[in-house]
Amino acid sequence: MAKRIDVSGLHVYYGDFLAVEDVSMTIEPRSVTAFIGSSGCGKSTFLRTLNRMHEVTPGARVEGKVLLDDQDIYAPDVDPVEVRREVGMVFQRPNPFPTMSIYDNVIAGYKLNNRRLRKSEADEIVERSLRGANLWEEVKDRLDRPGASLSGGQQQRLCIARAIAVEPSVLLMDEPCSALDPISTLAIEDLISQLKENYTIVIVTHNMQQAARVSDVTAFFNLAGTGKPGKLIEIGETNKIFTKPEKKETENYITGRFG
């Protein structure tokens, strides 16, 4: 189920502006990879190219290759819609559909592929996904309530449930905890550790402790200078990146010294 991601020589442009330059990396299945780096260095931009979400932004385009197992997701005959069914995404701000109940939120994506869905089948998927997102116990008695009636942390787990209901092989998360309190953050971190048994997970975070806690591999991005494109500086086992990184830049960032 989980798949490997292989990126080689990827450039990302917004119009003429080169935002991310020449990234190559391999992301192993059943692992958590964290992207860290200062603001504006292109972490989100790069993350969104892994499921072609950047194409929603007018003028955004990529050069280079992204392989999902052996499938080139930018091959001419590949539909971005198919890519996104395979590579799910969770956003910084929890964004459940406000007009839908908790139940409908979870099943929304699954329904896209399976129009004729028996009620029992749908119930099963909703329960499995909510359990998978550690939310079932909290909401099982009010599945018909609006998704927006939950707390921020619960909403974010609802979004994770919605994403895993379509059974993707990869889950991308862009600062999923930055709008949450410490308790909710811990709940999501626990969840990430569980989810990695079945999924390939990539998470962007500004929280260094979080990267250290949840990830197996850490990738450090940085800007070469103002107005210059963001670059991948170093990628390696989280332990190593946080104890003895190879690059001086990485060490400065980790220890809080810049320049």
Binding site: M53, F91, N95, G109, L112, R162, A163
Partner: peptide, 24 residues
């Protein structure tokens, strides 16, 4: 964010409209 939520689930543009735009 609502539109992106639908698209990230693998919705086509029309499905995104039905899921996120029309109800809203």
């Amino acid at each position: 964010s609502h539109r992106e939520a639908a698209l990230a689930l693998g919705a086509t543009r029309w499905e995104m409209i039905r899921m996120a735009v029309l109800p809203f």
